[in-house]
Structure formats: structure tokens, C-alpha cells
Write a protein that binds this DNA or RNA. Structure first.
Lengths: 232, 232
DNA sequence: CCAATGGTTCGGCTGCGGCCGAACCATTGG
DNA sequence: CCAATGGTTCGGCCGCAGCCGAACCATTGG
């Protein structure tokens, strides 16, 4: 059966430890060089090259040459979503002991990170919860949200680039993305990306180098309180 | 990072063609026997047994023994969600699984039969559904039911020997038994046996010789309608 | 033009894991 | 008590895929 083959192939692509390590790094939504990815996976460059070629072939990654370097990034937000849902599974799979150990080891990642191009972790959940609590977002279908009229006003006042987000018509506008650490949906899609952009543009958050971890600045913490009515 | 290892492990579990075929079948949300799963995967029973054990160990599946059979099902909706998102990545959709040939082989057995000493098949399910729908049975624990006060009245009116059923104190009173053809629980235990006895005693059903198959008589069909509000 | 850096291709080694035959255990029904 | 059926365990075979060393290609800077 075709669907079965496709399922096992895409899962097998993610099922190798080296490739999984690369994908985890790429979950920050940014492009990384082949060397970086080889380093993080703990393998030689030539082995990494093979892995990367296979993932491009399997439509998990997109590659772009730039000078001597080749940059790889996730092919789409669907890839990010699939990885997140697998991580959610892995979270329940891990024993309580090892899970708490992992969480203790990386509390910052749990607090705030990027998931492809939008905010995740406690901050992503806080933003999403605020939007739904104030009636700015309403559930629409099993995996989407609808931005209400008050929600549009709120986003405009915040400086979110709504026209730009709407322009990417091929993309889901307000998508639900399951957060692997909080185990609840946060806002993704074009709107989620636009909101994250606003956080970076207004200096509320900063990406940490070579990591999906995001640091919430002091002004970001204040903004969460004043604009979203949330404390984290 | 622990989450990376966990990601690759859970993805690798789904990444084998045989296991993926089994998971695809299980996407219908029902429980299936080890033999069925081996058949659909195109492998021998012993190989399938190994795969199934690994998936139970990895918390992808839950197993439940029932007589000589062992039924496997997806461990949670999170598993289904992860598989679905992987299928979405592959650009394919989870189609309703095709039913096995065994399913069609014996329509009478599927319609009504005894399971030990109680009714099973479509009739067993119809009786059980009626009892729960009217509030006569309530779920109690993972594998039992509770007979409510209205349920007791209903049974007495029907002529079910409740005192006799309660006498066998060593036995489960109202047990959930997984129906292999309907793949849903039906009523078993002392109460299930007492109800089946009523069907035989009142001429609603007849055992066929040398078979577990049970024939529903015309009066039985009428009784199902008048007493249980069910048509089969 | 040459050296340095980043990346890929090729070939051969190696180990993991999927597979089956055979034997074994458990439950059921006659 | 015995045969039939469903499932698992064990042992051994075999192929695939991941890994690296070496060589090769491409871009950049001096």
C-alpha cells in the first residue's frame, strides 16, 4: 500500500539518531551549514552529507548554496509540526525520572523557544492562552484558529504585520501546533510567525546562537504583562 | 540531549515497513489480533510478535489478552495524531483500513454466537449498547460495569436470575469482554451469562449443534425490538 | 595560480536489526 | 485428556544502511 510505504519512509528518515539530532537543531526554523549539522550530530562531514542528501530527497529539508557554504533548513512548517508531535509522544514515552532530568537540564528551552518560525514553550503557550482568553482567537476545525474582529484590532495595535501574513495564501493562517513540553496547542502558521517576528522586532525576545532557545528580554517580560495580561 | 534520542527512537519504531503497516491498520482506532497484524504486514507470526512487543515497550501500543487472542490497539490519540502528521508530510491520507478476509467468511458467527457462556457478535453488542444507552449499565473501572438501580428493575422484569448470578461470588459480576468481530466490549461475567440464559430459556435464541453459532429466533428478534429497542 | 576551506562521491568495512524455522507455552473445545 | 489454535521465545542467517578514509570538486582569498 502506498500510504504505508510513505509513512515508513518518512518515519525512517527521522528515525536515525544522527538525522534526528540535525532535525532538532533545524527546529529553530533557521538554515544551518552542513558542517554545523555534522558537528551537532557527532559524525564526519561526509557521513552528514549523505544524511542531508537523503533528507532533501525525502522533502524534509530544503538546501541553498551560498558561496562555499550550503545551508539546510526544514522544507516546511508541516515538517516542524510532525517533529513536534513525535516529540510530544517521546515525552510521554520517557520515564518520569529521565524526563525531569531532561527538563532540569534545559529549563530555558522549555521556557521559550522557536518552533520553526513561531514561539513555543511556556511563552508561546502564555501568548496563545491570552489570545483565546480575550476572545481574539476562536477554535476553527480540529487544527486551526480563527482571528476574530477584536483580535485583528489587537494585532494591529501590537504592530503585527497582518497583511504580510495574509499574503502567504498557500500557508495555513492560524494553525494549532502541539507543544511538546507544555503538551497543549500554541499558535503557529503565518499568524504565529508574524507574532514571533513582532517579538523579535520590538526587542521583546532574542534568539540564542545555534539553538532553538529564545531569551525573553526585560521589556518582553513587561510587554507580556501589559499587552497580554500574562506573567511567566 | 535526551529528547533527541527519544525522537529518533519513536520515529524508528514507525520507520519499519512492517510496523508501519500494522500502525496503519490500527489507525481505525480498534483493537486487532496479533495474527491479523502479521497478515497485513506480510510477515510471520513470530516476527510480528517481536515488532508488537517493541511497540508496546515504546508506548505506541497497548495490549490486552482475551482468551487465546491478544488484542493490540494504539496506546493513545497522541500516537494517532503523530502518525497522521507523518502521513500528511508524505502527502497521503490515512484511509479506512480494509477488512480482513476472515471478517466476511462466517457471517452467522459474526451475527450471534456464544463467548464462553454469554452472547457475543452483533446481538451481544446490541444488547450491551441498549443497556448502556438506557443507563442500566455504567462503566466501572477499566474492565467492569456496574448494574444501576433501574438496571436491576429491568433485569427482574426480563426474568434474569439476578440472585443466582450474585451467588457465584468468586466470579466477576458484570465484566467487559472484547468482541473479536465487533471489536468493542460486550457484557460478560455472571450477569452476561444470566442474560444469555434468559435468551435461551425464553426461546429467543437457540444454540446450533457443534458450533458456537447462535440462531436468533423470530420471537428473539421481536424481543430485541420491544425490550431493548434494538434492531439487528 | 596556489593554498585553504567547505562539501560531495566512492569504496569497503561492520554491526544492527529484520526475518524465519523450530520449539515451546497457554487457552479452548471436543 | 488430547488436538487445535493463537502467541511467544530462541537461535542463526543475511542484507541493508551507517560509518569512515581517501580522493575529488568548488569557491574564495591572497
Amino acid at each position: 500500500m502506498i500510504t504505508v510505504n510513505a509513512l515508513s519512509e518518512v518515519a525512517a528518515l527521522m528515525g536515525d539518531p544522527a538525522r534526528a539530532a540535525m532535525l532538532s537543531l533545524l527546529m529553530d526554523g533557521r538554515a544551518h551549514t552542513a558542517s554545523d549539522l555534522a558537528l551537532i550530530a557527532g559524525i564526519t562531514a561526509q557521513t552528514a552529507s549523505g544524511h542531508l542528501a537523503r533528507m532533501v530527497e525525502g522533502n524534509l529539508l530544503a538546501a541553498r548554496a551560498q558561496g562555499r557554504n550550503r545551508f539546510y533548513r526544514l522544507a516546511s512548517s508541516d515538517v516542524a509540526h510532525a517533529i513536534e508531535s513525535l516529540m510530544a509522544l517521546a515525552g510521554t514515552r520517557a520515564t518520569a525520572a529521565s524526563r525531569s532530568a531532561a527538563w532540569r537540564r534545559d529549563p530555558d528551552l522549555r521556557f521559550c523557544r522557536t518552533c520553526y518560525d513561531h514561539l513555543a514553550g511556556q511563552v508561546g503557550i502564555a501568548v496563545t492562552d491570552s489570545l483565546t482568553k480575550h476572545g481574539y482567537l476562536e477554535p476553527k476545525g480540529p487544527r486551526d484558529w480563527k482571528l476574530t474582529q477584536p483580535g485583528e484590532l489587537f494585532c494591529e495595535r501590537l504592530g503585527v504585520d497582518l497583511p504580510g501574513a495574509r499574503q502567504a495564501s498557500s500557508r495555513h493562517f492560524a494553525r494549532q501546533c502541539l507543544d511538546w513540553s507544555e503538551r497543549r496547542p500554541h499558535i503557529s502558521g503565518a499568524l504565529g510567525a508574524a507574532i514571533a517576528d513582532t517579538f523579535f522586532k520590538r526587542g521583546w525576545a532574542e534568539r540564542l546562537r545555534r539553538s532553538r532557545t529564545v531569551r525573553l528580554t526585560d521589556s518582553g517580560r513587561r510587554a507580556l504583562g501589559s499587552h497580554f495580561g500574562a506573567t511567566v
